[in-house]
Design a binder for these strands. Structure first.
Length: 286
DNA sequence: CCAAGAATAT
DNA sequence: AATATTCTTG
């Protein structure tokens, strides 16, 4: 068994979010129209509720700001896809799944190597940019700092929306970050590397499958994506688009092509027993 | 020049 | 509040 290094890796692979959940980023291949077209009528008997259903009829599409791609059809010639340049992509939504991936990557890299670029590469999420990660990382660090002050660690976050929770979960502190098990060593000064040493990114090991997602699948995912959280504040009227436009990769790094790796994931986003969002599919997978 | 980090902006 | 974008420094 020389699987020493592959050891943690294989384990990691198992926790990778299922395609369904990290689709928001990969939806890049699916156009909203297509999604809607597929969406469909899908009588989803086992689908959860969908209070805020994406009403197809109204001419108004969810787009935060103006300048979008599907807007005027003149831009260059094609107006279809390619643009990647000059276009603004929608805000990235860090779903618990994505964040989990993020945390895992950071954890496995060690705080020292956990720099945006490396994290991004390790996550191998299509469409994720360094800036995305950088921004999130910044916030994540603040969160960790915050935590050091109070609570030595117990990540008992995970509040089921009720009010009983362990300490260290201030209403202002939890939210997304509390939903993922924060690696212990994070709270200490991660110096010298405790267990993870990976100066470089083993991305090569991750590269296995390609995109094989079908439109139908994407459409389905598109739906559950919007109908998430059930505990949203009342005055929250901000809709953020869930699709990202990022059809092509432009890597200059020595790594190969970062593609999304799909794997089975049962989502255990909370170790403290406080189940949280998602996991729309009972028993296994669809 | 590229990338990380902090500071700002939306 | 959450992300993005800009600015500065390495």
């Amino acid at each position: 068994m020389k699987e020493d290094d592959s050891n943690w890796f294989s384990k990691w692979e198992q926790e990778l979010p299922s395609p369904d959940e990290l689709m928001p980023l990969s939806q890049t291949l699916i156009t909203p129209d297509l999604a809607l077209a597929f969406d469909i009528t899908n009588s989803n008997p086992l689908n959860d509720s969908h209070p805020p259903p994406p009403p197809p009829p109204p001419p108004v599409i969810i787009q935060p700001s103006s300048t979008d791609f599907a807007d005027s059809g003149d831009l260059g010639s094609g107006a279809g896809d390619e643009p990647a340049r000059t276009l603004k992509r929608p805000r990235l939504v860090w779903t618990p799944q994505l964040h989990k991936r993020f945390v895992d990557a950071v954890a496995h890299l060690g705080i020292k190597n956990a720099v945006p670029k490396t994290i991004m590469q390790l996550m191998s999420v299509d469409g994720l940019t360094r800036e995305n990660v950088a921004s999130h990382l910044q916030k994540y660090r603040l969160y960790l700092k915050r935590m050091q002050g109070i609570s030595g660690g117990s990540g008992g976050g995970a509040n089921g929306g009720a009010g009983l929770v362990s300490p260290a979960s201030d209403p202002a502190t939890d939210h997304l970050f509390a939903s993922s098990p924060v690696p212990p060593h994070f709270l200490h000064s991660a110096r010298g590397n405790s267990d993870h040493f990976l100066p470089f990114v083993p991305v090569g090991a991750l590269q296995h499958h390609h995109h094989q997602m079908a439109a139908a699948a994407a459409a389905a995912q598109y739906h559950r994506q919007v109908a998430h959280f059930g505990s949203s504040p009342p005055t929250n009227g901000q809709f953020e688009n869930t699709f990202l436009a990022r059809p092509v990769h432009r890597v200059g790094a020595p790594v190969s092509t970062p593609v999304t790796n799909y794997s089975e994931d049962l989502d255990s986003g909370n170790g403290t027993g406080g189940r949280k969002v998602l996991t729309l599919f009972p028993t296994g997978n669809d």
